[in-house]
């Protein structure tokens, strides 16, 4: 049986100030995988996600989500940005940030009501952050902020989830809580794409992996392609990590 393709990227080149940071990327992400994107700092991982989500305009190439341009499929996609990309001193509460996840389905002008609030509270519950719903977001720890972002993505009730380093700066228990939620999403048939830095945990957490460093190095099932050869190609130095044990 041929798997459906959730996201297809063809010949994608993205540049900042006319300096390309992603070169000619071809990528197919099958439906229902839990995929890690790995690569060194500055490899263009965040850039790739932002381009797929239409946040950045590529200078060449095309992207489709379930066969159609992203603009037509917004409601199918949820996004967790890199934590450092927002101002945590912004005057707002945890609940309010999660509610932002519902804005997409509301569209312009329409305001969130009870239904949206209920969905946001449920999402907060799922990530164990209900007791913090009225906290100002700067008064949350790094791990709690990450959970809020996750809740905001959950509330979007999407088919495809993009997460930029959801494990950044979280402790072991939060990491387990997050990965359990991601695995539950995959089980429910969702496609989850995660920028990930901890190579040790790739085989344990993910079933699919993409190596990226300006160019796409490799993409496929973890058990087939997660090896020293690809790691070395991606990270430059002679990379030896005993991942088999």
């Amino acid at each position: 049986m041929k798997q459906k393709i959730a996201v297809q990227v063809d010949d994608l080149t993205v540049a900042y100030n006319y300096k390309p940071v992603l070169w000619d990327i071809d990528l197919e992400i099958p439906e229902g995988v839990l995929m890690a994107i790995v690569g060194p700092n500055g490899a263009g991982k965040s850039t790739l996600i932002k381009s797929i989500l239409g946040i950045l305009k590529p200078i060449a190439g095309s992207i489709s989500v379930y066969g159609k341009p992203y603009e037509k499929q917004r409601s199918l996609v949820a996004y967790v940005p890199q934590k450092g990309s927002v101002d945590w001193d912004f005057p707002t509460t945890a609940l309010d940030v999660v509610m932002m996840g519902t804005y997409g389905s509301l569209g312009w002008i329409k305001r969130p009501g009870q239904k949206e609030k209920k969905a946001a509270l449920e999402a907060l519950e799922k990530v164990g952050m209900l007791p913090f719903k009225n906290r100002q977001i700067s008064q949350l720890s790094g791990g709690q902020q990450q959970r809020i972002f996750l809740a905001r993505a959950l509330v979007q009730d999407a088919s495809i989830y993009f997460m930029d380093e959801p494990f950044q700066g979280v402790d072991a228990s939060t990491e387990i809580a997050i990965i359990n939620i991601l695995k539950a999403l995959r089980k429910a048939g969702k496609t989850v794409i995660v920028v990930h830095h901890d190579l040790q945990t790739v085989p344990e957490y993910f079933d699919w992996v993409t190596f990226l460093n300006v160019k796409k190095i490799a993409t496929g099932p973890v058990k087939d392609i997660f090896n020293d050869d690809n790691l070395t190609k991606t990270y430059g130095i002679n990379y030896k990590v005993s991942i088999q044990e």
Binding site: R74, D87, G104, W108, I109, R152
Partner: peptide, 22 residues
């Protein structure tokens, strides 16, 4: 009044706003 929520989300998190279509 009309665009309060759009202004809020794009000020707090421009990336999310863009991905949501605002």
């Amino acid at each position: 009044i009309a665009f309060f929520k759009e202004l809020k989300v794009s000020t707090f998190d421009a990336g999310l706003a863009a991905s949501l279509g605002f």
